[in-house]
Structure formats: structure tokens, C-alpha cells
Amino acid sequence: MSSEALTQKIASVFQSVGATTLSFFEITGRLFLFMMNSVNHMLRPPYYPRLILRQMIDIGFYSLPVVGLTTLFAGMVMALQSYSGFARFGAESAIPNVVVLSITRELGPVLAGLMIAGRIGAAMAAELGTMRVTEQIDALQTLSTNPFKYLIAPRLIAGITMLPLLVLVGDIIGVLGGYLVSVHTLGFNAATYIQNTWNFLSFMDVFSGLVKAAAFGFIVALMGCYHGYQSKGGAQGVGAATTNAVVTASILILVSDYLLTVAFFSQ
């Protein structure tokens, strides 16, 4: 290989690294600006109570079956798995604690967050994306209505407030799942199980889970709105926006879950 070709090759490597870095910063910058703009409009009036309520019903009420089923089975599996593991060194009595802690701290918020990312994040991206490509967002602006206030703020508010409530319900159902398996198939005493569950549960366990849930609700709504709002190029663009909304929301949920866990529980 001649030295000229080699230089060119090396230059092109640097070029592609540079281009990737630049586009990474461009995307994070744009996302950050979008987030600041959204939060700004979310906090200041005018508010749209009707729209907020509609989003709350969509996110909160209609997601109950999905979240309930997910956490129910998560609790049941937790009980079975920890039994088969703990029985080896005679620690079966720890099962109620393990179930309630893992559900309230981790599984409840994370599973609910991921389910909502699939259910709500995708729907938001598809709806806003369609509105974008059919010029409905432009139409809003020409009708003197700020799309950030009218479309995005209600979704963010509903996401932040509804996910903790969903997770609270999910926590209870998840613990119930663990209880059902433990009492009916593993032969635990019902009263002891409930007492052990209750004794070891601290306020912080539930509270940290609910804070996580609020953060995940914000992430899901923000990603759904961002990708939908920025989408272009017809049906294909809306499809891509939907995929991106779910994928980025899921990844960010897991990343922020780690960071929040560090913030809450690492001394």
C-alpha cells in the first residue's frame, strides 16, 4: 500500500469518528433543548385541564391491566425462583422480604416503565408523528396555539403523575402474586407471610420506587413526544419515530434506574 493511500485511510477513520461524535453531540443537544422547552411550557400557564385529564385516563386507567398482569406474574416468579434458590441453605423464611423488596424497589417501577414505554411511548410518537406529517402541528401554530403547551405539556404532566400511581397498584398486585404462590403452592402460613412482608418493608423502599416511576413516566412521555414531534417523511418516518421512541425510552429507563438506585441506596 502506498503511503498516500495509507494517509487517506487513516484520515477517513478520523473523519468517521469525528462525524459520529459530532452527530452524537448534535442529537443530545437537540434533545436537551427540546426537554428544556417542554419543561418550561409544562410549568407555566395556560394549562389545558381537558387534555391533561384525557392523557391521564389513557396512561393511568387504561394501562392498569397491562401493569397489573406484568407485576402479578413478576411477583409469582420471584417467589418461585427465590424458593428454589433459598431452600438450598434453609433460608425460605426470607422469601416474603425478598419478594416485597424486589417488587417495590425494582421490578414494579422498571417493568411498569417498560410496559408503558411500549404502550404509551409508541402511541405518543405515532400520534404526534402523524400530526407532524399531516401538517396538524403547523395548523396548531397558525391557530395561535403553542404545540408545546397543547400537545407536549399535558403528556408530560400525565406521565409524571400517573406512573407512580400505576406502580403503587402494581406493587400491591406484585406482592399479592408472591403471596399466592408462597401460600398455595409452597406451603407458607398466610398470616406469617403477610406479617413478614409488612415487618421488613420500610417507607424508603416504596418511596424510592415511586420516585423512579415518576422519572420513568417523564422519560417515556418525553421520548414519545420528541421523536413524534421531530418525525418527517410520511408513514415510514412515523414508523421510525415510533421505534426510536420505544427503544430510547427503554434504554434511558434502565440507565436512569441504575443512577437513581445509586443516588438512593449507595452509602
Binding site: 400530526m131 401538517e135 395548523a139 397558525t142 395561535s144
Partner: peptide, 19 residues
């Protein structure tokens, strides 16, 4: 936004809000 109160626009595909 105030100026837009004086403006009306008919979009190519009408861009009606389907919600």
C-alpha cells in the same frame, strides 16, 4: 401568537385535527 390571531390558513390536505 397575537399576529397569528389575524391570520387564517387553509392547508393542502386541510390538516384537520382528527382528535
Amino acid at each position: 401568537e397575537k399576529l397569528n390571531n389575524r391570520v387564517g390558513m387553509l392547508f393542502q390536505n386541510a390538516a384537520l385535527f382528527d382528535s
